[in-house]
Amino acid sequence: MSDALTTGDEIRIEPVSDKRGRAAFVDCGRAFSDRLPNFVPQIRSEQIELVDPAKNPFFGHARVQLFIARRAGQPAGRISAHIDELALAMPADQGFGPGTGFFGYFDAEDEDVARALLATAEAWLVAQGMRRAVGPISLSIWEEPGLLVSGQCHPPMIMMGHHPAHYAGWIEAAGYTRAKTLYTYDLDITHTFNPLIQRIIKSGQRNERINLRRVDKGRWDDEVAIILAILNDAWSDNWGFVPFSPAEVAYAGKKLRPIIHEELNMIAEVDGRPVAFMLTFPDVNDALAKIRGKLFPFGWITMLRWLRHPRGAGMRVPLMGVLKELHNSRMASQLAFMMIEEIRLQATGKFQSTRGELGWVLEDNQGMVAIADTIASKVNREYAIYQRTLG
């Protein structure tokens, strides 16, 4: 690391430029996370991989600079500044677009460090020609978007961030305003749904045009391509949407395969054509909490057993989608309820699960909010994405 920037009498901001620096960046974040009640340690090597340009295909369409703050030589915080070329190409009215850069991986010892880190990230973005900063998003919108502002009282589920509540005040004090709120919804899956939903489901089951099928891991690459094609269409008008690149599709498929159980992941077909999907992941944080995020020397045994049969695990639905041509139609909600019910039965039956989590869901995604409300789920976490004009 070189070209350190000194801000104030004690705080020194160092840009990360090599393998050793990336490891230090990850370790800094892990040290902050270890202080938080209910945090679940993640696997260090996987965290390092996410910030490695040689391994994470996000870097194939992004410029990224990582920074570590030090005080008296000791790590005092960290931040990323990054520009996603695919996000720059999106329409401005969808949240990103030309001139929009990002910050992420935000941790700080106190407000002075927070302000110095944000100012450093902003200066880097301005030097790159950006006029607006949005964050925290670490690194992709599809990875860990938003700052946890409500819901610290329970552990996060798989692929969701966990942050202390006071970070929000520091970011807002630096001139940021909330651009969007994301929700996750908690659901007791041991109860059947209300009679109206049951009638909608049964009506769909009688419809010969509709076929619900499990994802087939025997032809996993083909299934991933189907799911991502539906996702890129279904979400294309959503705030913050950025399409997956082909390299990211392949990468996501490889990373997700070990936690995929066919019974928990569905593709819906109408007249033989895939039109909707729902992915459900057993909450690997259940196992990671037991091994404290360490595979060695013996944690891998616990992890392997859990992956084979995650008995009693919480279930998270991170992604679902219906082709745009069916949006706002009765069939769209019918397909959603049918998939939710089938997965609920499998989760409670085969895996003895008792709770599920939907999300994240955009605050103004009326269709998904309505579905979440109809099945009697409750908001259990709130994430904020902030923005600030630069210059």
Rank of each mutant, 00 (worst) to 15 (best):
F59D: 01
D93N: 14
A72I: 02
D27W: 01
S17E: 11
G146H: 15
I79T: 14
F59M: 00
E14T: 12
I141A: 05
R44N: 12
V40L: 09
I43A: 08
V149I: 14
A81G: 11
S150Y: 07
P37V: 05
S45H: 10
R63I: 13
M90I: 11
P98K: 09
D93S: 09
P37F: 06
D52H: 06
L117I: 05
N38F: 06
D107W: 05
K19M: 13
I68N: 04
A123W: 07
G60N: 15
S33D: 15
A81L: 05
F32C: 13
I79P: 09
V64S: 06
E14K: 10
A87H: 04
R20D: 11
P41A: 01
R44V: 13
L36H: 12
A31K: 01
L88T: 06
H61V: 10
R115Y: 08
H82Q: 14
F39P: 01
P136D: 07
A108N: 03
G77Q: 02
L117D: 00
N56F: 12
F58Q: 00
A121W: 07
S150E: 15
P15M: 05
G151D: 11
G135S: 12
D84S: 12
L50A: 14
D110P: 08
V51F: 13
E143R: 13
S33N: 13
P75I: 00
P15Y: 03
A127S: 08
A87Y: 03
S80M: 09
D93C: 09
G129Q: 03
R115E: 03
H82F: 10
F96C: 08
R12D: 02
H82R: 00
I141K: 03
E144S: 12
A133Y: 00
H61C: 12
N38V: 04
H82S: 10
P75Y: 00
Q152S: 10
R30L: 13
E122W: 12
I141W: 15
V134M: 15
F58H: 10
S45L: 11
G95K: 02
Q94P: 13
V40K: 01
A72N: 09
F102H: 08
E49M: 15
E85Q: 08
M90V: 14
I83R: 04
G151I: 09
P37Y: 04
R132E: 15
L118D: 00
R63T: 14
V134D: 15
D34C: 13
A69M: 03
R132N: 04
